[in-house]
Design a protein around this nucleic acid. Sequence first.
DNA 1: TCCACATGGTTGGATGTCCAAGTATAGTCC
DNA 2: GGACTATACTTGGACATCCAACCATGTGGA
Lengths: 169, 169
Amino acid sequence: MDQPLPRDPIAEAQRNWVRRGWEAQAAPMAAITAIMRTQQLLMLRIEGVLKPFALTFSRYELLTLLAFTRRGELPMSRASSLLQVHPTSVTNAVDRLQAAGLVDRAPHPLDRRTTLVRLTTDGRDLARRATDALNREVFTDTGFEADDVDALIGILARFRQQAGDFDPA
Amino acid sequence: MDQPLPRDPIAEAQRNWVRRGWEAQAAPMAAITAIMRTQQLLMLRIEGVLKPFALTFSRYELLTLLAFTRRGELPMSRASSLLQVHPTSVTNAVDRLQAAGLVDRAPHPLDRRTTLVRLTTDGRDLARRATDALNREVFTDTGFEADDVDALIGILARFRQQAGDFDPA
DNA sequence: TCCACATGGTTGGATGTCCAAGTATAGTCC
DNA sequence: GGACTATACTTGGACATCCAACCATGTGGA
């Protein structure tokens, strides 16, 4: 899987789709498959940068989300909503971050259903160091051209909005 | 997680990045995070369409790849290369498809290291029906605008090429 | 002919995803 | 005040990802 293929496998699949008579669906299929592959490439790269910190991207995202709150804490349901992952994914991430001493769970003062997840000092420090590494090694030179970055942001925001991710206003 | 958020969480994260002084990295970070979320949305949608066929996207892709070959078979290493997944992911997919009677494993006539994975009649039929469903329910109306589909294809092809996925020629 | 290197595929393991179901708690309405 | 609905989070499970290590086989060069 390290060796470049002689041809773009997704362009090939697109041609196959056209050959089978699915012309209207060929380009959308290719775009979606390209998104899947691009995500995979980026994930491998990001996980590679985070590995020395004993972090995965999922756990990193939760730490960073907490680091951006005023008090370094959030209800788990809120974290699930903002990170746009299933509540069980947050449970999983909090379990592992808590075992590593990077967050704590705390009861909500007024609502016994709610668990607050709170950043520890170690967690805040690691979030900062991991962000420095990602900024330096991924976000400074992503492999996208600058114009493409802006275009992607626009296109994917329109898509996410029509998918119901956030309100139009 | 079903309710739209009042604001775009990724745009919010981008503003947070700028506030922290990481201006050059903010847009690339947002583009990458948007790719992650878009992939997740598309995957949920695709898995939803495939579920009645007792297929996952990963298994579907292998079936479709085989359906496009002349003889309905490929060496597993070739499948790994074309699908751009780790060999263990192909082993996993073949195990499950084989258990479901959708593919068979066969020895290579000339190379005892190599295992061929071969589509069965049931597998070919299921690949066709699942493709019909995906064409109808996902690829005909993806949620992307038509211009955006073409732009995505171009942008992501450039990215995948610079990442070493395929040769420039 | 033998050895070193490469290839193909598997196994065990770690990880994170979401679904279904369950329990505890809170809110609303009659 | 009680019943019903909703919310928060967990647990168990299915699934697929990739990594590390291993074994069997093939290739090429000395």
